[in-house]
Amino acid sequence: MARMKFLLDAERCTECNACVTACKNEHEVPWGINRRRVVTLNDGKPGERSISMACMHCTDAPCMAVCPVDCFYKTAEGVVLHSKDLCIGCGYCFYACPFGAPQYPQAGNFGTRGKMDKCTFCAGGPEASTTDASFAKYGRNRLAEGKLPLCAEMCSTKALLGGDGDVIAGIYRERVATRGYGSGAWGWATAYGAPSRT
């Protein structure tokens, strides 16, 4: 069984924000919510890197672990989804998520936030994927249409890879071998030492 994953090649990301725009448009995400965003580190300095960030559909997802109403579930392909009917908007998942993926549509009195919204890997929600109600809550189900997340599909430099983890890891490995100076991934130098570009 394929395991769905996102993988960002920071060496290729040009911070165009097209993934952010495409996601927002495809799912008609409400104002104030970005399921995906681009974070730039060391902006304007040597070694600047941009990383496109959304829900990473963790294998052992912390959001699932902390949810008091157990509204999260995982599909057979490893996509972490949630039910907006069960969500009480407590915000625990927001604090637990290391990527800041969970988003809330409102900030009201007494700490009300509304139902949590996050990247669905373009896989909809627990309801039938073709209904208007499902689209309004979770967005389009491109996976069921035989496609992949739009952010990854339309990335012009193919910096953002999405799909079967084994396949995209193979693609990335080929790129690294071709470059010949290490991965170029953000955080690589911290973990494995500075790459030598000789």
């Binding site: 057979a76 069921a144 693609i171």
Partner: peptide, 23 residues
């Protein structure tokens, strides 16, 4: 129950084209 449910991924021609172009 939902753990076993599939999100509907299949390696269609569309998906294969994406993988080929991403290299």
């Amino acid at each position: 129950e939902t753990t076993l449910e599939s999100a509907g991924y299949s390696e269609t021609a569309h998906v294969k084209t994406y993988y080929a172009l991403a290299k």
